[in-house]
Design a protein around this nucleic acid. Structure first.
Length: 867
RNA sequence: GGAUGUUUAGCUCAGCUGGGAGAGCAUUACCCUUACAAGGUAGAGGUCGGGGGUUCGAUCCCCUCAACAUCCACCA
């Protein structure tokens, strides 16, 4: 197989995924003696196409999975999807609406059939998308949040919590979504700044000629008013406590109550109380024994108590009612205000606080358990750490969780009501005499089943070998926006039901925004389809881009140029590989390298490789994917491509057979290590290159990650080579500064009594275009030349430039050196530094000082000679 | 009102426990040098948001101010 001159992602990516999958490489548990590493995918909703956020989230996991596998772990990564109750039901309903039918026309059974059809269709599409991205998921263990096993687990959890008193049914003010016609939990409500009106109405006092003014933003709820409240300390109103006033909406007589809850400063200081439509009012209503009056239907139209407004939408009612009150002469004024209005996360409908009978999870005991866990020895480690605080502070003040939803698509609540006695029975299986019972119509919040994901995917509540072997999970990777929805709930449910945290570590990543930093959304139309990007640049480039351009926990922007530059980087590696594979002899056999046989250039690149492996591994272990990639990137571009490969060309053109053989070994070894380190990020192209290596295994997925071998580090060789590189750069620079062509011929003198640089003559010829290289043993003979002075040797070019210019250049260099000497001396003279700083820092500083002093001496001598 | 994050080159962002400021894109000059022009070589471009403090030394630690962003809680 020969490689094309350009990296072509389409060709490279073709067929690879099927190959891996069919070979069974994604399957865990093939060798249980290996240390395990387990993860589950955050299940995407079966509502549509995957977006960039999914791509980022899953790529991070895939990188870690592939890295761990290459390191010899038994990696389990379980795929799955979420039924996404409200979201999916909304989509299915929308689709039905296009056909002109509603879910009520179909009925529950038929509707669920449609929903399952939808699920199958989208599951297939999601599978295809995972494949395009190259995710190494173990499909033999795939789960769905609404599958049978999950359903059994959900029922068990519900019943157990109920029996422990941690689930209860209650009549409470909940957030009602009138479009979806379901209750929501508090965190499914999004508060947005909305413009509204503050209406000031006259409430006439009963039996008096006077009135008081009550202000409200929600006149339509006045039909549910039970009283008017004032602060007993408020001198304006305290004499009215115990009196009655008239509700201007319906003429009802309302008692005037005194309660300190009312803020004297706010509004008019007199507040209407609507227990059935406001959580605070509900508490007050309870306190004073007022029966809540519901004035709306489930779709937020006004109900029968509202007289002529019955059947009107709440906002239309508001309009007409205000008009009526105005006609009655009871409107004082309308004030424009901006206030926070709750919207449904899914439908965006304005949420109606609504008194309703729902099921709740009693959170306090569960939250406390979770908080306690974070102080014990099974603490879940958050990456980055600060998200632990986000988690704990939410847990500290969490409200009870409303878990019932008036939907059809979801886990049906295992509660049964006796048709005659109204007895409530909560049980995993329906009562034997089911004909006498009626099951609760509602389903559970999607997140109720998602919360069980880390252990139900492993077969819980059955005592499966997977559960025993892979639980708790080693890592969970998810974005910060679902810490409350998901992470925290997994934690408390797991602690409650398995007595273990669900995972040991949780890696929190940010969101991907558009190039202007805005959140991607349908309404803005600024979403980026990852599969269009892949079409253009390849999955590897997208994977590299999304996982390397940001820092953990931080949002990042989608910048197309960066995807392009990722593809360019891949192309760079591609071509470096092409070169190496092109020069290796046909009969090349990788073999062990003896470090003593290597030339300094080989030693240099091997040492650099070792430190790169070390840095990459260090950062991979901490999930710093960006840092790890930067280290590799620098190594690939600078050390390997710019220097070593170019130098190797000279070696390979030479006559020294042994040196060539060593270089082949080194080239191969470095290339392979590069491929292995980039592999988790860019598996497709890495596999392609790997398959072209001599003596490769069946797949890169069976290959091991490079390990650190310090034996190659030879400080002397590195110094020698770095001086060589510095000279080459200085000469290139000199040519530019003096308007010489890069390939201008030069005559190079070397003052190097030890003849260290003798062996580099062919390299210097190629890199500096030296036509002649002369070893000069009399330093004085160089005094009229342009000098390059290093610690190991001096180099000189013949030049006609005047002495003044040379002196000027040397003097400025001297100044620089003087400064450095001052700095180093200052540091070393400081007892605090010498005694407190780490020894290696002190030693490094001492060495720097010596070098600088030496350098200064040379410069001074040179200047003296020129004068 | 609480909390968190951000502020570094023209743009987008890195910068690991304080020890000489980096990348990509854009930009300038010169190179089609036999792996790569989706490239190479050499540059230019930063009082590291402002002000204090700790330290021999601060982009990094502490205090403070400002701007922006996000989350949480919210008075009808």
């Amino acid at each position: 197989m020969t490689l094309s001159t350009r990296y072509n992602p389409k060709e490279v990516e073709k067929g690879k995924y099927e190959f891996w999958k069919n070979k069974g490489y994604f399957k865990a548990g093939e060798n249980l003696t290996k240390t395990r590493f387990s993860m589950v995918i955050p299940p995407p909703n079966v509502t549509g196409k995957l977006h960039l956020g999914h791509a980022a989230n899953t790529t991070i996991q895939d990188i870690i999975a592939r890295y761990k596998k290459a390191q010899g772990y038994d990696v389990l990564w379980i795929p799955g999807m979420d039924h996404a109750g409200i979201a999916t039901q909304a989509k299915v309903e929308a689709k039905l609406r296009e056909e002109g039918i509603s879910r009520y026309d179909l009925g529950r059974e038929k509707f669920l059939e449609k929903a399952w059809e939808w699920k199958r269709e989208y599951a297939e599409s999601i599978h295809a998308q995972w494949a395009v991205m190259g995710l190494s998921l173990d499909y033999s263990r795939e789960r769905f949040t609404l599958d049978e096993g999950l359903n059994k687990a959900v029922r068990k959890v519900f019943v157990d919590l109920y029996n422990k008193g941690l689930i209860y049914q209650g009549e409470r003010i909940i957030n009602w979504d009138p479009v979806q016609r379901t209750a929501l939990s508090n965190i499914e409500v999004i508060y947005k700044q909305d413009k509204g009106e503050f209406y000031y109405f006259k409430y006439h006092l009963v039996g008096k000629e006077d009135f008081l003014v009550v202000a409200t933003t929600r006149p339509e709820t006045m039909f549910g008013d039970t009283c008017v409240i004032v602060n007993p300390k408020d001198n304006r109103y305290k004499h009215l406590i115990g009196e009655y006033c008239i509700n201007p909406a319906n003429g009802d007589k309302l008692p005037i109550i005194g309660d300190e809850y009312v803020d004297i400063e706010f509004g008019t200081g007199a507040m209407k109380c609507t227990p059935a439509h406001d959580p605070n009012d509900f508490k007050i209503g309870e306190k004073y024994g007022f029966k809540p009056i519901i004035c709306m239907n489930e779709d937020a139209t006004m109900n029968s108590i509202c007289g002529k407004y019955e059947g009107l939408d709440r906002f239309e009612c508001r309009k007409q009612l205000v008009e009526q009150i105005k006609l009655d002469g009871n409107l004082i004024k309308i004030e424009e205000i901006t206030h926070e209005v709750g919207h449904s996360e899914r439908s965006d409908a304005v949420v109606e606080p609504y008194l309703s009978k729902q099921w709740f999870v009693k959170m306090r005991p569960l939250a406390d358990q979770a908080l306690k866990n974070q102080t014990g020895n099974k603490t879940i480690t958050f990456y980055p750490e600060r998200f632990n605080k986000v988690f704990t502070s939410w847990m500290e003040k969490v409200d009870d969780w409303c878990i019932s939803r008036q939907l059809w698509w979801g886990h049906r609540i295992p509660a049964y009501y006796h048709k005659v006695t109204n007895e409530v029975r909560v049980s995993i299986e329906p009562p034997d005499d089911m004909e006498n019972w009626k099951q609760d119509e509602d389903v559970l919040d999607t997140w109720f089943s998602s919360a069980l994901w880390p252990f139900t995917t492993l077969g819980w509540p059955e005592k499966t070998s997977d559960f025993k072997h892979y639980f708790p999970l080693d890592l969970m990777v998810t974005a910060y926006d679902i810490i409350f929805f998901w992470v925290s709930r997994m934690i408390f449910q797991s602690l409650e039901f398995t007595s273990e945290p669900p995972f040991k570590k949780v890696l929190i990543h940010g969101l991907i925004r558009d190039s202007q930093g805005r959140k991607m959304s349908k309404s803005l139309g600024n979403g980026v389809d990852p599969f269009e990007v892949i079409e253009k640049y390849g999955a590897d480039a997208l994977r590299y881009f999304i996982t390397t351009t940001s820092t953990p926990g931080q949002d990042s922007r989608y910048i197309e140029e960066k995807v392009e530059s990722s593809a360019n980087y891949i192309n760079k590696i591609w071509n470096a590989a092409r070169f190496v594979l092109g020069v290796l002899p046909i009969d090349f056999k990788p073999c062990a390298i003896n470090v003593h046989d290597l030339n300094p250039l080989d030693k240099f690149i091997m040492a650099k490789l070792e430190s790169t492996i070390e840095a990459v591994t260090y950062n991979m272990e901490r999930y710093e994917l960006g840092n790890a990639s930067t280290h590799l990137y620098n190594f690939v571009y600078d050390d390997f491509c710019s220097w070593y490969l170019e130098m190797a060309k000279v070696t390979l053109n030479g006559e020294n057979i042994k040196a060539k053989e060593n270089t082949y070994q080194v080239l191969f070894r470095v290339l392979k290590a590069i491929i292995m380190m980039i592999y988790p990020y860019t598996p497709f192209v890495s596999e392609e290159l790997y398959q072209n290596l001599p003596e490769h295994k069946e797949s890169i997925m069976l290959e091991s990650y490079p390990t650190i071998d310090k034996s190659f580090v030879d400080q002397g060789a590195i110094e020698e080579v770095e001086t060589l590189f510095k000279l080459i750069k200085d000469i290139r620079n000199y040519k530019v500064e003096n308007d010489l062509a890069p390939n201008a011929k030069i005559k190079l003198y070397i003052f190097d009594p030890k003849r260290i640089y003798q062996k580099y003559v062919p390299y210097l010829e190629r890199f500096t275009f030296a036509s002649e290289i002369i070893f000069e043993d009399n330093e004085d003979n160089l005094k009229n030349h342009i000098l390059f002075i290093y610690d190991l040797a001096q180099f000189a070019l013949e030049d006609n430039i005047d002495k003044e210019k040379i002196i000027l250049k040397l003097t400025s260099e001297l100044e620089h050196v003087e400064k450095e000497i001052q700095r180093a001396e200052g540091m070393l003279a400081n007892p605090n530094f010498v005694t407190k700083a780490p020894k290696n820092k002190v030693d490094a500083e001492k060495e720097k000082l010596l070098n600088h002093q030496n350098h200064r001496k040379i410069l001074l001598e040179k200047i003296a000679k020129l004068k």
